[in-house]
Design a protein around this nucleic acid. Structure first.
Lengths: 137, 137
DNA sequence: CTAGTTGCAAATCATTTGCACTTGC
DNA sequence: GCAAGTGCAAATGATTTGCAACTAG
């Protein structure tokens, strides 16, 4: 049993072809931060017979299971990535869509302070920076 | 001429009934952070004959003109608010939807550093914290 | 076997657009 | 008066759902 199928079993999902295929795509080094549509296109290119609806269903199941994270970027497009072991935020190029990750302990710490000060019990957060990347500016 | 109509004129938009009505709603103390649908409902309650399409068009124009800011919160819903004189971010209660604003100079500064380090020309950013507010925890 | 899963097409939701009609200046 | 603005209905794009067929355990 591979690491992927192991992960599926752990979250109580049957090990099916579509799920494994999608998990493999998410795990591919080259394609961090993909949209559902992206995944669907990649599957088509590989001549896999998997419907777009299934892609969405599987991604949603993975998200609920905590296997993947969903991010809503500006311009109304969502991307998915395998849940990182270590939290990070994103900076997105508004021209070419290129995404870089970053993590900043100071920012994280300040966020906790702020939530505390305002009486919130923090469960999650979303920080996205937008601009032109080195190639597009 | 009121402050609102003044604002419209400054950004080169004709002073029309729908625009003034929508601006008034956005300016109302009680309704910071409204969705397009919210505004449409408020207009209906006031028996104003303004279409949802117009609400979207007007909000988009306002956004382009810099009069209002659009925020994409989790769960795929967008909210609008009058552009604040001073930038701030948001913390949102995932149970009751209550929104508080905050600003943190340190975080802002770190963001600029990060963008610079990654070679981005920063144009915008979006920071949202999610959790349970004091009343819902 | 049989509950969970899938593919497909149709449905839904938020938002946008085409177009004939109206209004602000 | 006329360009800009609007209402409505139809179009769009992303995502969800109903349902009969299929498959993993």
């Amino acid at each position: 049993m591979t690491a992927e199928t192991q992960g599926l079993k752990e979250v109580g999902l049957k090990i099916t072809l579509p799920r494994v295929k999608i998990l493999n795509i998410l795990a591919a080094e080259s394609v961090r931060h993909v949209s559902a549509e992206d995944i669907y296109k990649i599957l088509l290119e590989k001549n896999e017979d998997i419907g777009l609806a299934t892609v969405y269903r599987v991604l949603t199941q993975f998200e609920n299971a905590g296997l993947v994270s969903r991010h809503h970027f500006e311009g109304g497009h969502s991307v998915f990535e395998l849940s990182p072991e270590h939290h990070h935020d994103h900076i997105v190029c508004i021209k070419c869509g290129h995404v870089e990750e970053f993590a900043d302990p100071d920012i994280e710490a300040r966020q906790k302070d702020i939530a505390k000060r305002l009486g919130f019990e923090l469960t999650d957060h979303d920080l996205n920076l937008y601009g032109f990347c080195a190639d597009c500016r």
